[in-house]
Design a protein around this nucleic acid. Structure first.
Lengths: 334, 334
DNA sequence: TTGTAGGCGTTATCAC
DNA sequence: GTGATAACGCCTACAA
């Protein structure tokens, strides 16, 4: 309620004095004055206005995380893990979800000059996770000053020096090779039809090398229930594959239920592999083989990179790639 | 990059003129001047600095959601649902998690006068969900101006006029009565030992009325895996109840797995009831009976209330209580 | 139709 | 040690 001016008037001091005493514990001040200021501030319930402070200092002590909708547990995992990091550095974490509502963040009309992505520069930095480059780059330019960005997941961009990659190519290949090695022939891919996706690339490449026919089922984004139905319908129409390599764990779990609905057993009739490494995969009657993403480590490094960049804007590019790990469980073992 | 002053200088106009043209489409201006300003602004990549604008207007077009850690899916559901609402109103949603890291938001030291909960008043309003009153009230007072709050879930506070309640008392009673009605006698409660909790109260009251012995197993907060182990150990030590009324769906799912570990069957050996209504409960071999929370409706109303309060600070208190709904599934049917 | 100037609440740079 | 005073970038009366 009370501004620093009121506080200063009340104390018959200048606001400069008050500000220095409040902010800088080492400022060379009369112990008595300091004490007076501190007590009176507490009495009057003074708290600095963060907006005004941000305007004056150019810093907000806040970083943003840009990530996808929270419709599967993996996203929550990322948020949780990162929020622990930023909290440890006593930064605020602002979370922006995208990809959930139609006109992603602002409608074209409101995206005009006058109403930009409002908070784009009320943060000191941004960490993106799995954001399509075009989308965020366009949005990023909306800011009134350049803000450091650390890209995690997704693909590195030539324009953004700092990057923490999650490489699941090796693990994805290993997963498909593992299925091939089990002697299965009809191995399907159930994933978003994105040719850039490493999982999809790994599947295609391994299947080609093994001389096996490819069977790509285009996953429609949706809830587990919708995915469950989609897969059930697919099997009803086309029969069941011997194995399914799924886009992520949520998909794998939905597929698992769809198979149960149809009276098919995992892994005897159909082997199953997911991706992400969320806890849920261990909570099915048959634990699901999955590609475990090193989310905690990713968050740690991303936050480290961002802190460094904030302190040294001209530091050399920071890049690190983490390898995902295939964890074989009962869903793909005979 | 460019400030409004640079833009104005470039155009040989005053910043007032530029500001008005940019912000107010209906301002009475020369079509030619307007056009000049608009084009030049686009060319120079001008975007207003939201911090400066917020300082000048006192509004940020941002609301905060204060909620618990994202360690179970219910929280994600709330966030998703609310973020859709605020996005529709073209507001930013800032998410603050608490309850995850030790010194909840700021350490005592940094919580001094000089470094308050930084963003407490860089938002226009706050929606809380399931936040313990003491905690957020204390924090709320840290702001430099009073900010409208809408409390959802939890208990209403005499100091906060706007409230959207989730009442699960009736449904919780119905759940326990349902178990009693099945003729089961050893019905356990597996929940956080909080006497304020409606679920716990309902359990105690119904069990008393039925003259049945109470068996309260104090749930330790943790991951599903930890809960699973906790329950397994409990059963190993004390034998298994005939039914378990669980704190939430995550707990129920963990219990389900623990029972499987022990070779016990649901519902034949043990009946199971959860709470929240998350999608996962339908994804077990035996769908779990649960108390479905009306999250979407809660979000809708909370946002409505907050918008109203922002427009009319002196509007009368707005309160609405939503009833949760018991949904009986296979886990509690013979 | 446009310009001028004060204010928003801080921090920071000078002097004294 | 302390007090003025100029930024910070924008909005908005009030004048012209």
């Amino acid at each position: 309620m009370a501004s620093i001016i009121q506080l200063a008037n009340d104390l018959k001091l200048s606001k400069g004095t008050v500000s220095r005493i409040l902010n800088d514990a080492t400022a060379p001040y009369n112990a008595k004055t300091r004490h007076r200021v501190l007590t009176r501030a507490a009495e009057m319930g003074y708290h600095p206005n963060p907006v005004a402070r941000a305007l004056a200092t150019g810093r907000t002590d806040t970083v943003a995380l840009w990530t996808r909708h929270l419709q599967n547990f993996y996203q929550s995992w990322v948020i949780n893990s990162l929020s622990r990091q930023t909290a440890a550095g006593s930064f605020n974490l602002l979370i922006r979800l995208y990809g959930q509502y139609g006109p992603t963040i602002s409608s074209p009309a409101s995206d005009s000059v006058a109403r930009p992505f409002v908070l784009s520069d009320s943060v000191d930095g941004v960490i993106t996770h799995g954001v399509p480059p075009d989308e965020w780059l366009a949005r990023f330019r909306g800011g009134s000053r350049p803000v450091p960005i650390v890209v995690t997941g997704g693909v590195p961009s030539p324009e953004i020096p700092d990057f923490v990659g999650l490489e699941l190519c090796t693990a994805a290949r290993a997963a498909v090779e593992h299925l091939v090695g089990m002697g299965l022939r009809r191995i399907a891919l159930f994933a978003l039809p994105n040719p850039e996706d490493r999982r999809n690339q790994a599947y295609i490449s391994v299947m080609e090398a093994a001389g096996l026919p490819q069977e790509c089922i285009p996953l429609r984004e949706g809830t587990r229930t919708e995915t469950r139905r989609q897969f059930r319908e697919y099997v009803t129409a086309c029969g069941h594959p011997e194995a399914v390599f799924c886009h992520n764990d949520d998909t794998a779990i939905a597929v698992y239920r769809a198979l149960c609905d149809l009276g098919l057993r995992v892994p005897d009739d159909v082997a199953l592999v997911g991706c992400d490494g969320i806890e849920d995969t261990e909570f099915l009657p048959v634990p699901i083989t999955t590609i475990v993403q090193p989310v905690e480590e990713m968050s740690r490094i991303a936050w480290e990179f961002l802190q460094r960049r904030l302190q040294e804007p001209d530091a050399p590019p920071q890049q690190h790639v983490l390898e995902a790990r295939l964890e074989i469980r009962a869903s793909s073992q005979k």
